[in-house]
Design a protein around this nucleic acid. Structure first.
Lengths: 188, 188
DNA sequence: TGGTTATTAGTCAAAGTTGACTAACGAAAG
DNA sequence: CTTTCGTTAGTCAACTTTGACTAATAACCA
């Protein structure tokens, strides 16, 4: 399932009952449109698709004056399950060239419990170390291979640089989470 | 113009006359399918679209035995201009959440001259510093704003972490480029 | 020598994305 | 007081992406 659907489903959960235009504004203030490349039109498409799949339901159609009608949506129990599954997938899995997973985690981590997020981040850090090591061997192979061009090493070097940066960020966040920053699922 | 089209156009330039399946294999050994999320089907679509726009032309249709026919393509003068324009755009412009531009630069820099790439990387480093500074002010604003949730700071922090990592990578590459590593346009 | 798998080369329907467009309303400016 | 501009709320046709599918040949292996 795509980032767009995860983002829209997560936002519906937080603001339900909610209509498309509200999500559009809200996602902009979170900068989600920036890092996930979500254009307005995609939000309405995601809402329709999520409804077809039974993850959200239409919970009303309001009309203020003669303005265009607003269809509002709410999450279903199946939607809650799917949302947690998608979020958990992003939290626990690290891929060498996936730049959106960690952004999704940063934006929606509070939908999981503090304990799970802390464990997940610790696991991400370990997994990142493993990928960094593997990137090093890939660079060696690239340089000694006759079919792979040498500059492919730059792609692995960039992956390594980014994963290191994300590790630094994750460590800083971990410390703040352990100190009690932010509010997570089941708190208050 | 999208990353897919840039990547396909750049690869056509390097291997012309070239058919879709060759590009598919070649882009895989460069890991382009990984960082640019390019599936096989997208390559054939990009080739058709680039032809319609006049950036490449069909330069033949080979048939070996009773295998499926292979349509081969070559770049046009208009394609060369457009390719340089797109590449230059990625080299000289930095955006806070754009993760593909620098990957494209790493993969296709040798299509520009060594001097331009060196100047462009120097400029990218300066521009990244500016965005990092601006991210800092954005975090301040986020924390003091009543409408923007506090965790949006994590998104800016991640942007800063990544830009720093890319700066480190660019500096290391710059040193090697100044020392003569790789072969660029107009060399040999 | 016959069967299975891998490689070559691509197509296509379904799904998702893009960004320009409509259309009503409120507020500000001249 | 009316024209202009921004905001609200969403649609839609054109385009791109996805990934499962076809269909032939080559390679392996018992």
């Amino acid at each position: 399932m795509s980032t767009t659907r995860l983002v829209v489903l997560g936002a519906v959960k937080q603001f339900q009952p909610v209509h498309g235009y509200f999500l559009r504004r809200e996602l902009m203030t979170w900068m989600v449109d920036q890092w996930a490349n979500i254009q307005p039109g995609s939000i309405y498409n995601a809402l329709r698709a999520l409804e077809v799949d039974g993850y959200i339901v239409e919970s009303g159609t309001e009309t203020e004056g003669k303005r265009p009608a607003r269809t509002t949506y709410s999450i279903t129990p199946a939607g809650e399950v799917e949302l947690n599954r998608m979020l958990r997938d992003r939290l626990w899995n690290v891929a060498p060239f996936d730049t959106q997973a960690i952004m999704t985690v940063a934006s929606f981590m509070f939908l999981l419990s503090r304990d799970e997020v802390i464990s997940g981040l610790e696991h991400r850090i370990a997994k990142s170390d493993a990928i960094i090591t593997s990137n090093g061997f890939n660079v060696e192979d690239t340089l000694s291979s006759e079919t792979t061009p040498d500059y492919v090493r730059e792609i692995f070097d960039l992956s390594t640089a980014r994963l290191s940066a994300e590790k630094t960020w994750a460590n800083a966040l971990l410390e703040r989470l352990r100190a009690g920053e932010y509010t997570f699922a089941g708190e208050e």
